[in-house]
Design a protein around this nucleic acid. Structure first.
Lengths: 304, 304
DNA sequence: TTGTAAGCGTTATCAA
DNA sequence: TTGATAACGCTTACAA
């Protein structure tokens, strides 16, 4: 012992891993790391993982189903102790995740989840956030509220659409499908779509679901010379600071990215550490969103 | 072989690591992951690392020297094959990095480097970027150009200040120390500092060096009712898209975050893979910045 | 060609 | 209490 102290001994974690058949590392797959929502979430994951003595190995799917599958194969080969994943915009089939479960690797989905798999899930309360955002616009007198959102496959898309629809219903505004636009991740796609939407549908409000889409809306509106907020009422966003500058009275639905990351990591590590003891029940945890109102009819919904 | 194929065999990377005494993982320490510059850089690192069969383990110093030292200890214990690091805003002493080198662990510093250590370094051409930004403001008729920048310890701060000074010198504008403000990472600090700067020094242009500082400048200027760009000429930034919305004619010095990440990773992996062969010479690679001019005197310098 | 054994650094187990 | 040994999964080297 004193000799160990003397030579500054620390056990070789690789040998330990081999012996104990665990790596004290968790894998994280996100669509894109250079995205405020996901980098915040990773922040939360790292926070918990470090506190509990785990390391975080990060993979990006770049919104591609193919890359997600490849990542999963790497994860399996790498022998991480567990996996946190937020699905790519293309992911429909989840057999790669089922493979993870067959290998008895603890798995937690966060933010972008899937109904097709039974596992722990941690999400924002997207329904509630979208409901509140839409109702806020309605209560400020808007009737033709457009909704520009993420690809239709994603769970977040469906949940938010539901919140939007239920809010309209509650206030007896008929649901108009032509006011809802799904938008992928190609830079040019959003711009075109938004231009057409504004010109053809003449909405009096837009409720978007990400940083990028909100910015594109602002661009389109500015370039078309439509005033904010007099003629159009807004919108969806991530960065409160930037939002505030763009339109000082803009309101926001804040997505709890950091908390989602923390909660997902807690769940995963708990699952890892009592893996052998008993079969556990799968839990879905909803983290509430918060509406920051800035005395106007403008609405932001945070990414992703 | 065919049996291996049949049972879908893949070698256990941990056993392999133990045997070959390498982990095929590289460590990355950044001040903050939820920062556009660093998440882009990590993107570049991941791009190269994955292509060459390595995994990326990420650590955050949260701008704290103490946490950076702790991270280094984890890195050493974790037996990664090499380390990429961008220094925290508090880091002055680099003995923790020297320890890494004594352990013969390949090391590459990127973006925020230090003169006190001999190692591979990959940086943006901050001098040139700052020179061009400042000169651009001067050529558009500005004389009292303020410079709001990062903590004075950082290499990026020094390099950019130098570019700013040399540009002033070239155009026979005396250097006025009271126009230069160093700003830390506390949210409230920037606001106060900028308010005082604008009120007391009455600059006719501000050249800042990060997203955050640029946003805070915009806030301050808006709240004080000073017009953009008539009375004040701008500024430093990261996100071109947002910048464009805030002030459509704003120009930008684009920081090559992705390329810095890629180059640093290439250098590190090369270093790892021919480690035993011969002692190598340390290289410092400067990646050029690009100025995006938008027909105005306004300047952006990208993060970080 | 095929097979066997040693060693990478641990820890747990069992024997002395 | 102390000490030797096996096993984790792999590769390399050498023997059959």
């Amino acid at each position: 012992m004193e000799y160990a102290e003397k030579v500054n001994y620390s056990p070789n974690p690789i040998a330990l891993s081999l012996k104990e058949n665990k790596s004290r590392a968790i894998g994280v797959i996100v669509p894109e790391i250079a995205n405020h929502f996901f980098s915040q979430a990773i922040n939360g994951i790292e926070d918990i993982a470090n506190k509990r003595g785990y390391h975080v190995v990060i993979f990006q799917s770049h919104e591609s189903y193919q890359r997600e599958v490849t990542n999963i194969q790497h994860i399996i080969a790498r022998k991480v102790d567990g996996l946190l994943i937020s699905l790519s915009g293309q992911t429909n089939d989840v057999s790669h995740l089922q493979e993870i479960q067959q290998k008895k690797l603890p798995l937690v989905l966060f933010d972008r989840v899937s109904d097709k798999i039974e596992a722990h899930k941690v999400v924002a309360d997207n329904f509630d956030g979208a409901f509140k955002a839409t109702e806020h616009l309605i209560l400020s007198g808007r009737r033709r509220i457009a909704h520009i959102t993420s690809p239709s496959l994603l769970s977040i898309t469906k949940e938010r659409l539901m919140g939007y629809q239920v809010a309209l219903e509650k206030h007896q505004i008929p649901y108009d499908e032509s006011l809802v636009k799904y938008c992928g991740f190609e830079p040019e796609e959003a711009k075109k779509l938004i231009f057409n939407l504004i010109n053809e549908q003449k909405p009096d409000a837009i409720f978007t679901t990400s940083d990028r889409l909100a910015l594109d809306c602002f661009s389109a509106v500015k370039e078309q010379g439509i005033l904010i907020p007099e003629e159009l009422s807004f919108i969806g966003f991530t960065n409160l600071k930037v939002a505030h500058l763009l339109a000082p009275s803009l309101s926001t639905i804040v997505q709890p990215a950091f908390e989602i990351g923390q909660t997902a990591a807690e769940l995963l590590l708990d699952s890892i550490e009592r893996k052998q003891h008993h079969v556990e029940e799968f839990r879905t945890i909803k983290i509430p969103t918060e509406m920051v109102v800035r005395n106007s009819s403008q609405i932001l919904l945070q990414n992703s």
